[in-house]
């Protein structure tokens, strides 16, 4: 066994132990969160798989571009392998996100902008694999799929990072859980635009009044399908300029807050918050999360290189069979 191989084998063993440690830490080291309970632990699996998806699809595009430039079969194998493993991680991110959504939002799937965009991304890469399997001519398959892959990669940052933020609001924890990230909320007026939407919840501002040193907003909340309608009264501290009472949405673990008011014009900025805001502010959670990112990246590298190796071996075996079948 050569030194390089021995090093690679040791790295794989270490990766196995590292990931086992992350699994243990996910359940035993990081604390549960008020309002979320144990559901918050899934961040250790969900976010790193989504990040690795980005890396995988970007690497796949790099190999495709290099294939179009140098026309080497190994680059095509690298592009396919990275795309396949990226697809796997993207599916894992979607599944773990749906599990989280079922606990926190009360449904596995509610067409949130984030859910919709990742589904579109999955379909785009499913089309990449369908395209490859539809073309029999090897050279044509490689060339066309490499060109398609470059277009697919262009959509990836838009679908993962831009599209979910273009929506007025999303229930995804990107804006509800991690402090410092932006979630603009919605301005409603008592004499103008009274009705707005946050995620899939419709809000109607019924009134706004000053009660002592707090402003009280009367907001009618309707959940999808009008299953629940409730009148909530979030308040806003005028002296400190911060939200005070945050009533809970009926049947859901989301809170409604007034983030700013303009009493003179009867306007209020309404936003949603989820219990557990600042999920990563706990140091144990943060370091477990960072270790998971590193571990999943290592796992991706192992998986995609292994898959690329298998693809190259398949091609060598096929070529060998063809040569052996030739007449002498």
């Amino acid at each position: 066994m050569g030194a390089g191989l021995r090093l690679a084998q040791t790295a794989k063993l270490l990766l196995g132990v590292w990931m086992a440690g992350i699994v243990v830490a996910m359940f035993l080291v990081i604390p549960p969160y008020v309002g979320l309970g144990d559901a918050g632990r899934i961040i250790v699996m969900h976010v790193p798989t989504a990040w690795v998806t980005t890396v995988a699809f970007a690497l796949s595009a790099f190999y495709s571009a290099r294939y179009l430039w140098k026309r080497r079969a190994a680059d095509d194998s690298g592009a396919v392998a990275a795309a396949e493993v990226g697809f796997l991680f993207c599916a894992l991110a979607t599944i773990t996100g749906a599990l989280f959504a079922n606990i926190v939002w009360g449904t596995f799937w509610n067409w949130d902008p984030r859910e919709t965009s990742i589904l579109v991304l999955l379909l785009i890469y499913a089309a990449y694999f369908a395209l490859r399997s539809a073309l029999d001519d090897v050279e044509r398959r490689r060339r066309l799929s490499a060109a398609y892959n470059l277009f697919a990669a262009v959509t990836m940052p838009f679908l993962l990072f831009v599209a979910p933020r273009l929506a007025d609001s999303t229930l995804h924890p990107n804006c509800a859980f991690i402090q410092g990230s932006t979630c603009d909320g919605v301005w409603l007026e008592t004499k103008g635009v009274r009705i707005g939407q946050l995620g899939d919840v419709v809000l109607a501002l019924q009134g706004l009044e000053q009660r002592g040193d707090v402003a009280v907003a009367y907001v009618e909340v309707r959940t999808p399908g009008l299953q629940n309608v409730a009148l909530l009264e979030p308040t806003f501290e005028l002296a400190s300029g911060k939200p005070a009472d945050r009533p809970e949405f009926p049947g859901q673990q989301f809170l409604l807050a007034v983030e700013a008011v303009d009493l003179a014009n009867g306007r209020a900025l309404l936003n949603i918050e989820a219990p557990g805001t600042g999920l990563l502010s706990n140091s144990r959670t943060f370091w477990t999360f960072m270790a998971a990112n590193l571990g999943f990246l290592g796992l991706f590298i192992w998986l995609y290189r292994l898959r690329a190796d298998v693809l190259v071996l398949q091609e060598r075996l096929a070529r060998r069979e063809v040569v052996h079948e030739l007449p002498a």
Partner: peptide, 18 residues
């Protein structure tokens, strides 16, 4: 992990034989 390790070993052995 065990599955990946075995596939990895099998691929390496096949490459060596080829």
């Amino acid at each position: 992990f065990i599955f990946l390790w075995r596939v990895d070993s099998a691929a390496r052995e096949l490459r060596r034989r080829l």
